[in-house]
């Protein structure tokens, strides 16, 4: 049976038939590792993040890496053309990806990307929003909840000031942006279920 890991972070979604499931999984791991490392580097540059306990840093990164990557790579989802460009540079049609078994998750990713892109965030706003997403105090397993909450609150304050400053006439823009966070959580859960199904298969 062919194994297809049609993830935009996978360099080789359509695998060679002679590869073992273990080899396919290892190739996939090598494909997404640089992106994960970049998320860690990003986290290190969030003021205050490195002051959190190492365990809390790891917990936040483990729980939030997918969401950070989703925000970062939302532009890979071309809603108008109904295509996704993978990190390999190859562009796949939505139809082809659905044929690879990526139906429901992909539709929700497109929907999220469209909503996020419609806010037309500046690079600075997007970076701060990503920091807020990563420093989420409600992730399970946080040891020093107070420290994470304080950091998240300060990041949200700065984000609110920044968003208000760039669009003073649109008071709802900040609210709309924060409402993307539950959408990301839903996507994260769907993605986790997908990953688990591959492992079980």
């Amino acid at each position: 049976k062919d194994i297809v890991l049609a993830c935009p972070m996978n360099m080789f979604p359509q695998t060679e038939p002679n590869k073992t499931p273990q080899e396919i999984w290892e190739d996939f791991s090598l494909s997404f590792t640089p992106a994960v490392r970049e998320v860690v580097e990003f986290a290190k540059h969030i003021p205050g993040f490195s002051a959190l306990s190492e365990n809390d840093q790891v917990t936040l990164l483990k729980a939030g890496t997918f969401e950070v990557l989703m925000v970062r790579f939302a532009s890979l989802f071309n809603v108008k053309e109904q295509t996704v460009t993978f990190i390999s540079g190859t562009t796949y049609s939505l139809e082809a990806l659905k044929g690879m078994g990526m139906g429901g998750l992909l539709d929700t990713m497109f929907e999220f990307s469209e909503k996020l892109n419609s806010l037309e965030l500046t690079a600075e706003e997007l970076g701060l929003f990503t920091a807020v997403v990563l420093v989420s105090a409600d992730r399970s397993g946080i040891e020093n909840l107070n420290s994470v909450e304080l950091l998240q609150e300060s990041l949200i304050r700065v984000l609110r000031a920044l968003v208000s400053k760039s669009n003073p006439c649109d008071a709802s823009r900040f609210t709309k942006l924060l409402l993307k966070m539950p959408d990301l959580r839903t996507l994260n859960n769907m993605h986790s279920e997908k990953l688990l199904s591959f492992r079980i298969d």
């Binding site: 791991s29 997404f32 590792t33 994960v36 490392r37 860690v40 580097e41 290190k44 490195s50 190492e54 840093q57 790891v58 990164l61 483990k62 729980a63 890496t65 993605h191 986790s192 990953l195 688990l196 492992r199």
Partner: peptide, 27 residues
């Protein structure tokens, strides 16, 4: 419901990347 992040080996990648920073930090 097992942990997909562990399945991906994500914790290992994250810990190594975080430690990389400590090694590079000037004394």
């Amino acid at each position: 419901f097992s942990d997909p992040a562990s399945n991906l080996g994500l914790e290992d990648i994250i810990r190594k990347a975080l430690m990389g920073n400590l090694e590079e930090r000037p004394e």
